[in-house]
Design a protein around this nucleic acid. Structure first.
Lengths: 327, 327
DNA sequence: CGCGGTATGCAACACGATTTGCACAACCGT
DNA sequence: ACGGTTGTGCAAATCGTGTTGCATACCGCG
């Protein structure tokens, strides 16, 4: 900026005022400055602005794996809102819960490299204690999954309990009486809630815990078959595990949905293009991202205490992998 | 930091030296300072460091849609390397080529909010001129798709020409003689190259241009069928369009691969789980991301001119959607 | 005892933009 | 003509860190 000022024959102060308009400047001077700024393609150095203002104009998003369908959608929603508010978005991968990585974005918060963080966890966190420490005095929002030990931190979740009930009801209406559950991480609240809600309809349903990956659904289904477990329907806690389970069932010569009905969760893109299309519970991941970002901005910019947790609805989508029970 | 210094009874300078070790400090003093730092959980404010050092420790990644499988993989690779080098990664969505959005991350470069940019384009860029301007004097690497007008900018691409040849060869070996191509954006170099290379094997192949989305493959296949075009094999420029085309074929009662063989490109996850599994050309998107990031760091930190464009190999993966021609 | 070298620490400055306090001029109203 | 207001601009301070020049004290050696 000094260069602009020198060239215009005024002080840097005047240049700043001319551009911001916070104090009256001679219109003629303004015009001259603007011309020079235009010529040089001058833009204020962000580091200077940041230091002065104390704000970074950047928020962070912590996700286990940005390449994953699930977290990609969340990221998209967050990015959308961040962009709308003229904020930058830094992505922090937490793959494998590498403690060094986790430390990195906690430090970003502490060093004020970002103004706030949308935190997404898919397994029970390893460094929960540190998160607790950092959470005080920093702007954090939990997306998709709340953390029990930090109830005062705003979160954006979905009505997974209701979703599980819809699944139970749907399968009951189809006449099924013996169900198995291929559940998510045992430590997650959303897993516990879904297991409990589903039990309202199938109190004795056998429940196995997986890791949300296709392979896991495949293997757990293998275990069920190997042990001659009797069931006519499966509730998988996400679509990938449902797909893996279906693959395993087919390999065993069991038809879906004729012999066994399968229900997934999340409604991934693939659910519609596979055949038969997957019956599942739709979660609007992009909206979770959007809402999380908005909530974070409430924390950062809004009145203290104005940020509130929210719970988004889910929706049962009946497609081709569920059918009436037949003996 | 001033607070730490005051508490330790020394100047801020000493604290800085004690922590960085760039000048000898009394070990006793160091110990005292470290204890206080530990207590307060002090971390240097990043804005100060940035202003002082002139570096941001952040690189940018511009992608059309972070939620898309394709770009998510690239992002993952970039994030991996950025993290390895202790850099942050900001994501810039360029969805719909919204000019305001594009301006935003060009400005991030200009304002030195980021040290460099990995730029991914999936369509012919709207604001190419601006990119040309910004590219001078900034650190940019093109990922996945080079830009003809900027040959001096390093890029990381794949041997798509070779990939198309492998497809042509494979289909020829199966005895096919009439092919159609469902191509990508007409303006992309990778599209042109693949069309040309495939023509070496099927010189008269009818070529239709799509937008890389499933719907586009579906619709273009519909056009082909409606016009009674005769063909026994299809080369789609990505897997999503291939999947759309297969869906449309099935709806018309045409079997894949018995009646028509279909080959895709990219090798998306779904390709293996659909049935029959999709014959395709594998591109290692994560590696493209990794390599792009490494190349960018060569530009930023390496010897001037040390950054070189690279071309990664592709690989034909024969699965179930291709079969010998039968009359 | 004096000299040079080393250990140790402080004050001052730089990075770049913005804001505040102050000064000078022109102009208006009484 | 004089006090007050408004327009216009500059110098200086601020944000937080890292570095450099300088000063002091201490030690070893001749």
């Amino acid at each position: 900026m000094a260069q602009i000022a020198a060239e215009a024959g005024v002080s840097a102060t005047t240049v700043s005022h001319a551009l911001s308009g916070k104090r009256p400047v001679n219109p003629e001077t303004v015009a001259r400055i603007q011309r020079i700024v235009q010529e040089h393609g001058f833009v204020p150095n962000s580091s200077g602005v940041r230091l002065r203002s104390g704000r970074t104009g950047v928020i962070g998003l912590a996700v286990p794996d940005i390449a994953h369908w699930y977290f990609g959608r969340i990221a998209k929603g967050v990015e959308e809102i961040a962009n709308e508010r003229d904020y930058g978005l830094v992505i922090c991968g937490t793959m494998n819960a590498d403690p060094r990585r986790e430390k990195r974005y906690f430090n970003m918060l502490r060093t004020r490299a970002i103004d706030g963080l949308v935190y997404t966890t898919s397994r029970s966190m390893s460094d929960l204690d540190e998160l607790v420490t950092v959470a005080q005095g920093s702007s954090i929002v939990f997306a998709d999954e709340a953390v029990d030990r930090l109830p005062e931190v705003p979160s954006v979740t979905t009505t997974v309990r209701e979703g599980a009930r819809l699944v139970g009801e749907h399968l009951r209406e189809l006449g099924h009486s013996r169900a198995v559950v291929i559940a998510g991480y045992a430590g997650l609240r959303s897993t516990t809630e879904r297991v409990a809600a589903f039990r309202e309809y199938f109190p004795t349903a056998l429940t196995l815990f997986g890791d949300f990956e296709q392979q896991s659904g495949y293997e757990l289904m293998g275990d069920l078959l190997a042990n001659d477990v009797a069931f006519s329907c499966v509730f998988a806690h996400n679509d990938f595990m449902a797909i893996g389970a279906i693959r395993r069932l087919r390999e065993a010569g069991i038809r879906v949905p004729e012999d066994v009905s399968v229900v997934g969760f999340d409604d991934v893109d693939v659910a519609t293009i596979m055949s038969p299309a997957l019956t599942t519970v739709r979660k609007d991941m992009v909206e979770i991202g959007r809402r999380s970002a908005r909530t974070l901005f409430d924390v950062i910019e809004g009145e203290p205490g104005s940020a509130r947790s929210s719970v988004l609805p889910v929706e049962l989508v009946v497609r081709g992998t569920t059918a009436p029970r037949r003996d």
